[in-house]
Design a protein around this nucleic acid. Structure first.
Length: 106
DNA sequence: TGTCCGCGGGTGT
DNA sequence: ACACCCGCGGACA
């Protein structure tokens, strides 16, 4: 990603990561490795984390739904706490609307 | 559990 | 070109 006045220049890798993140169902979570596999770069798990961190719209892109594969919550730009609360919030909303299954965006 | 190392991509120098 | 830095994961003790 070139940092210039343009600000609309992102690498294809980042775009793929964010696109994959957008496919994560509301109120659900996926792992970093899941995203890595999904974008066709199974070993790029660390890069996925970096890409998610660099995402320009942290709330539009549901990067908070990406957690560690070992059950840990993982990191978050705005702090782990915020991430945790966001997930709880989505869970609550899901419950509020009496949603049994996942909501698929595509 | 805690550490350690490799991983791919991004950024600074 | 080089040397780090990471929102990780898996192996190993």
């Amino acid at each position: 990603m070139k940092k210039k006045a343009d600000s609309i220049r992102f690498s294809a890798f980042q775009l793929r990561v964010w696109e994959a993140a957008l496919k994560i169902p509301f109120g659900s979570t996926r792992s970093y490795s899941w995203v890595a596999r999904r974008i066709g770069s199974p070993q790029a798990v660390r890069a996925v984390g970096t890409a998610l961190k660099n995402n320009p719209y942290p709330l539009v892109i549901p990067c908070h739904r990406v957690v560690k594969s070992n059950g840990d919550i993982g990191g978050y730009s705005r702090g782990r706490k915020a991430k945790e609360q966001l997930l709880e919030l989505e869970k609550g909303m899901k419950n509020m609307f009496c949603l049994k299954g996942d909501i698929s965006i595509e």
